[in-house]
């Protein structure tokens, strides 16, 4: 039996988001959306996390951090890019310090669109992430 679908713990990292998606990620945990219903815990620690929720895009300084956080997550793990910036660089794609979406650095499993991404889409993204997590586990098993 696999418990991954019932206990997805997330790590949220703000790459270079405008806070819009970040606070929506947090909002998912609060009473109106209550992600904990699905067993989701916002761990704040890569070593405990199964799903990396990442908002904002890659820039010169955070690129190492993103890599490092991902590397420190134990397998199996899934990356969910939340919001337009994380998906592609969004409106800031042409800013001088933006290198692009998260997929420039990490293998992104789920793209959540929106500027800012709505909680409903984020929850949907997490649920899709759970599916990806299951698949990865099966592959590795």
């Amino acid at each position: 039996m696999s418990f991954f679908s019932k206990s997805p713990w997330i790590l949220h990292y703000d790459a270079s988001s405008c806070n819009g998606c970040d606070i929506e990620v947090l909002a998912c945990l609060t009473p109106l959306y209550d992600l904990e219903r699905f067993g989701v815990v916002n761990t704040g620690n890569p070593k405990h996390a199964d799903i990396l929720l990442i908002t904002g895009s890659v820039n010169e300084r955070n690129i190492d951090i993103i890599r490092n956080l991902y590397r420190q997550m134990p397998d199996p793990k899934v990356v969910v890019a939340v919001g337009a910036c994380a998906c592609s660089g969004g409106i800031f794609a042409r800013a001088y310090n933006i290198q692009g979406g998260i997929d420039k650095v990490l293998p992104v499993d789920v793209y959540v669109p929106g500027c800012a991404a709505r909680p409903e889409s984020i929850i949907d993204g997490v649920v899709q992430g759970i599916g990806a997590l299951e698949q990865k586990r099966r592959k590795s098993a």
């Binding site: 820039n59 010169e60 300084r61 001088y96 310090n97």
Partner: peptide
């Protein structure tokens, strides 16, 4: 303070390039 892909992004050269 910052670490930028484009060094000195507001230099004349950088603005011109943009």
């Amino acid at each position: 303070l910052y670490k930028t892909s484009v060094k000195i992004p507001f230099s004349h050269a950088a603005v011109k390039a943009r």
